[in-house]
Design a protein around this nucleic acid. Structure first.
Lengths: 197, 197
DNA sequence: CATCAAAACGGATGCAGCCTCCGTATGCAT
DNA sequence: ATGCATACGGAGGCTGCATCCGTTTTGATG
């Protein structure tokens, strides 16, 4: 699959190789140092000059989007699992957890996500992926609402924001205990009160 | 009052003047460009060299703490108002709003606050102020719990985190509508369910 | 296999911001 | 008025970002 389709031209060999090694190196650096890591360092460790990195990925956001692309497969896989259980409330909960973990992959990731989420026109490389996630969340929310498990006032976007926030908090070093309590607090905030088990 | 007390030495005149103008200039720059603003620019506009700024405030965090110090008076004033109303639930809610607005004063403020909040030893200039806020929040929470308005599992620290998150979200440009919904969601998350209002 | 043009590479470079060193100027006590 | 401690601030080293341009690599063609 990769970039998919057949372009008008055939891609050169080293281009693909450089792109691949850049992506892998960037992912490791993002993991270790957060998304704010030095792009020069990434280029150097990838064995290419800075210009090559910028040629492949014009902005830090573009590089980030490309790295996330590979990770998003996990999320899709999770979606398959989630949709197999019939309970919409449980599905929503698991989906939110999946998103939160996805957002927590690299420290500093929530910031650009938030920036992309509020962008109206798809000007940034992250805008489309974000919109997809928000839309997906909204569907889970609606399903749970239809089943009477989630309050009517809640929107998918709200819970996307909540997941982003949780990831942000986690990324800033908060202990798992407090994080768990906050997660529970949010859950009991969006759940319908008169749930008859 | 100022730095309070009587030191072993007497402070020089220009020192105090520089400190004052630096604080005022920094506040304006923080307001306009966020807490990540260029410190060199602050120094230049304050009419002093970079070294002077760093001598007065060794780190960005120190400068930030000093700037916040002046702002914290508003918060104290709010506390007086809040404690006058007898309803603990209402008091907690207003306190959380006050904190959120305080945290939203400058864009980028929540990050260092979070960093300071989890620090064990008071190594950072923001650690003490943060602990004060957390303790205060905990008192409001306990009062509301005692009155049966807030779930027993909730801790002050949790709501401090929540306020921080809301400020962070607001600072990242989210519209007031979504923000309001999320705020309501959190509120109905920490409130006790069987409130016989 | 030799040749060639397009495409990609990467070092060099300019810029901005951080932070520190050290010679100089300033303020305060005497 | 003098002297000394104290504070000042420009210069400079460092890191990271982003771009330009001479050189190299690649793959297509004869």
């Amino acid at each position: 699959m990769a970039t998919s389709g057949h372009q008008g031209r055939k891609p050169r060999a080293d281009v693909q190789r450089n792109r691949a090694v850049l992506l892998e190196t960037a992912q490791r650096h993002f993991l270790r140092h957060g998304v704010g890591t030095s792009l020069e360092a990434v280029a150097k460790e990838a064995g290419v000059g800075p210009a090559t990195l910028y040629r492949h990925f014009p902005t830090r956001e573009a590089l980030l989007a490309a790295v996330l692309q590979t990770r998003s497969e996990e999320l899709v896989a999770r979606q398959a699992d989630i949709e197999q259980l019939g309970d919409p409330a449980e599905a929503l909960e698991q989906w939110l957890r999946a998103m939160e973990e996805y957002f927590s992959a690299y420290s500093g990731l929530p910031e650009p996500l938030m920036a992309a989420a509020r962008a109206q026109e798809p000007d940034g490389p992250l805008t489309i992926p974000c919109d997809i996630l928000i839309t997906a969340t909204d569907q889970y929310v609606r399903a749970a609402q239809h089943a009477g498990h989630v309050r009517a006032s809640v929107q998918g976007y709200d819970l996307f924001l909540a997941a982003c926030s949780l990831a942000w908090i986690k990324g800033n070093g908060t202990d798992e205990e407090s994080l768990g309590r906050l997660r529970a607090l949010i859950a009991s905030g969006y759940r319908e009160r008169d749930t008859q088990a």
